[in-house]
Design a protein around this nucleic acid. Structure first.
Lengths: 206, 206
DNA sequence: TATTATATACAAACATGATTGTATGTAAAA
DNA sequence: TTTTACATACAATCATGTTTGTATATAATA
């Protein structure tokens, strides 16, 4: 086949990533072969091996497209340190993340793959450690916001910001897992935003 | 090879399940071949195919050994409906589950496999639905306990038992996930019991 | 109680298909 | 003219399910 321009090559690359995501979601990462991805993207394996070294590099490319914006998002939230209402800032962050999953099927699908269609062994074991590291980073940001809330007396006095941040992180982690897993019935997804609201309300000074 | 007695056959069966668990944990369910399991169990594939139809049946046998006792546990807890202190009952349940994971490496390993080393597609997709169903069952039991706590005025008055139960379930789900994922550093596991304590404390009437 | 028949608990071999990485070819872009 | 962006062909391994073989436990029978 004829050579493509740089722009066309980039389009091909993106088509491959999209195809990989869709096939991963359907068959799981391990059971997905390069040929599956290739035919779904309407290219040959040669094209994939040109753009990516192997399956895990392709996986990382897919993951980055979903994760990096989220990291940016939490960084932006953390910048909002001077917020008048830190508890609402936390609530907003949770809510926005859920809204992203609702509105962006690609991101949602990538989360689904990472949580229920990937085995974290061998080359993928490192990914799990990155996830844990991200969790720590995330929890620390939340902790800072709880600190500010406490200084502003918006927090129930007896509560410890570090422990609260952990509790919130675990809540949110659980929420994302249920969000992803509960695809059949629509019940859970509808309550998600309400659960976030109540979770934060529980912390406000009473 | 010679035929074994029923007792010996049962021992072989259990050896296979144990071997499967250990190999699943090391290589992930998809990448594990019957031959891997066979050699680890010091039998041939013939023995495995005699006892189990295929890999997923073996997976289910392994899963049942970890899950069924837990179901029994929560059923026992739910029987404790007349408890004087329902919030402590919930706390006890969470704590006991974590203690089980600490003390029983086999159970812990099975959880690890189910949460990070299994792809829920094809034959395994149904397992995910079972997990969700179990979650619902679990959440309902917790909800009942919160109801009782509310009737006894042990609960912060403004709180809704159903939403609280969901929040607790998400917290606990997140806790188990972090417990399993955070194998490297020992930091998280040490705080787990403290986090449970605080989570429940947050709900007590103030 | 001794004998026989049958089901059991595996081991070993077989047939088949799938998947990976690489190596090579090629036409157009730069 | 030299890369680039792929397609195609190749080699080698690996995994699965099934089939066949067999020694023995166990139950039935005489």
């Amino acid at each position: 086949m004829a050579r493509k321009t740089k722009e066309n090559a980039e389009i091909t690359r993106q088509r491959i990533i999209t195809a990989a995501r869709e096939v991963f979601a359907k068959r799981g990462v391990s059971r997905t072969t390069m040929e599956h991805i290739a035919s779904h993207a309407e290219v040959t394996r040669g094209a994939i091996y040109w753009h990516f070294k192997n399956k895990i590099e392709l996986f990382h490319a897919m993951r980055d497209q979903a994760i990096l914006p989220l990291i940016d998002h939490i960084d932006a939230v953390a910048l909002d340190e001077k917020s008048e209402d830190p508890l609402s800032t936390i609530e907003q962050f949770f809510t926005n993340t859920i809204l992203t999953l609702m509105q962006d099927p690609a991101t949602n699908q990538t989360y689904e793959i990472m949580m229920t269609k990937c085995e974290y062994v061998d080359e993928f074991a490192a990914v799990l450690q990155q996830i844990v590291t991200n969790c720590d980073y995330f929890t620390e940001k939340i902790r800072l916001l709880y600190e500010h809330a406490k200084q502003k007396d918006q927090l129930n006095a007896a509560l410890d910001p570090a422990a609260l941040a952990m509790d919130s992180h675990l809540f949110f982690s659980g929420l994302l897992h249920m969000w992803v897993k509960d695809t059949g019935r629509l019940g859970f997804r509808e309550q998600a935003l309400g659960l976030i609201k109540q979770h934060i309300a529980l912390r406000r000074a009473c």
